Every structure is written in structure tokens, then in C-alpha cells.
Simulated scan of single mutants.
Amino acid sequence: MTEAQKLTIRTHLLNGLHALSSDDMEEQTGFRLENCPDETDFATQLAQQGVNLAVTRRRMRRRIELEHALRRLRETDYGVCEECGEGIGLRRLMANPEARLCVSCQEDADAGFGRGT
């Protein structure tokens, strides 16, 4: 992988982190339920809080993945499949810079044949 390709991937990862940070600032409303005279309104608020929590958790996981990819990019193991040790295709890394598995191992993991199964 050339230095220009690494720079492109690094820029993509940093843009992803920046977008998550911007979203977090806009979305920080906290988790609270307002007093509702109606049980339906209360249930709706409760369901919305569940959705908000799920979105927050997903953003946190995404941030961790992006930070991990940036760390690996600085080290020597970036672009190496964590399962088989082969190189991850450059096209895959350009499309998904935080990829940790090659296409073949990712397909196996998605089918339930990866590590620990």
C-alpha cells in the first residue's frame, strides 16, 4: 500500500470520527422521560429513549472501530486479516477502511464459521 493510499484511508477515518463528534454534539439531549398524563404518550417516550440509547451505543462502537483502524494504520498490521493473516484487498480497505478481515474470512464470520464458533 502506497503512502498516498494510506493518507486517503487516514483522511476517510478522521472524517468519520469528525462526523461522529458533530452528531454527538447535536444529539446530546440526555435520557429523560417527561411527565405524561397518558400511558400511550409515556410508552412512546419510553420507546424513543430505547431507540436513542441504541443509536448512542452504535455510535460508540463505530468510534471505537474507527480509532482502532487509525491505530492499526500507524502500525504494521493494518491491511492484514486478523483471521488468516493474508492481506486485505486494497479495494476493500478503500471502501471500508476499518475492515479487520479479508472478504473470505468476513463471509465465513457472517455465516458463523469464524473464530470461537
Results as ranks from 00 to 15, higher is better:
Thr44Asn: 09
Leu14Ser: 02
Leu70Asp: 00
Thr29Pro: 00
Ser21Thr: 08
Ala69Phe: 02
Asn96Cys: 14
Asp41Val: 10
Leu46Asp: 13
Cys102Lys: 01
Thr11Pro: 04
Ile64His: 09
Lys6Ala: 08
Val80Asp: 10
Met94Glu: 15
Ala43Phe: 11
Arg10Glu: 08
Ala43Val: 07
Thr11Ser: 12
Ala4Thr: 07
Met25Trp: 09
Thr29Leu: 14
Ser21His: 08
Pro97Glu: 04
Leu93Gly: 04
Arg74Phe: 00
Thr2Tyr: 02
Cys102Gly: 05
Asp110Gly: 13
Thr40Asp: 15
His18Gly: 12
Val55Ile: 11
Met1Asn: 03
Gln106Ile: 08
Arg74Cys: 01
Asp77His: 10
Val103His: 03
Thr2Cys: 00
Val80Phe: 12
Cys36Lys: 09
Leu13Gln: 06
Phe113Gly: 15
Cys84Tyr: 07
Gln49Thr: 03
Ala109Trp: 10
Thr76Ser: 15
Gly89Leu: 07
Lys6Phe: 07
Gln28Met: 12
Leu70Pro: 00
Glu86Asn: 06
Ala95Asn: 09
Arg58Ala: 13
Val55Phe: 07
Cys81Gly: 15
Arg32Asn: 08
Tyr78Met: 06
Glu82Met: 12
Glu39Ser: 09
Asp41Thr: 11
Pro97Leu: 01
Glu27Phe: 10
Arg100Glu: 08
Glu34Ala: 01
Leu66Pro: 00
Leu101Phe: 01
Asn52His: 07
Asp24Thr: 08
Ala54Trp: 04
Glu65His: 01
His12Arg: 13
Glu3Asp: 03
Ser104Arg: 13
Arg10Asn: 05
Glu98Cys: 07
Leu33Lys: 10
Arg57Leu: 08
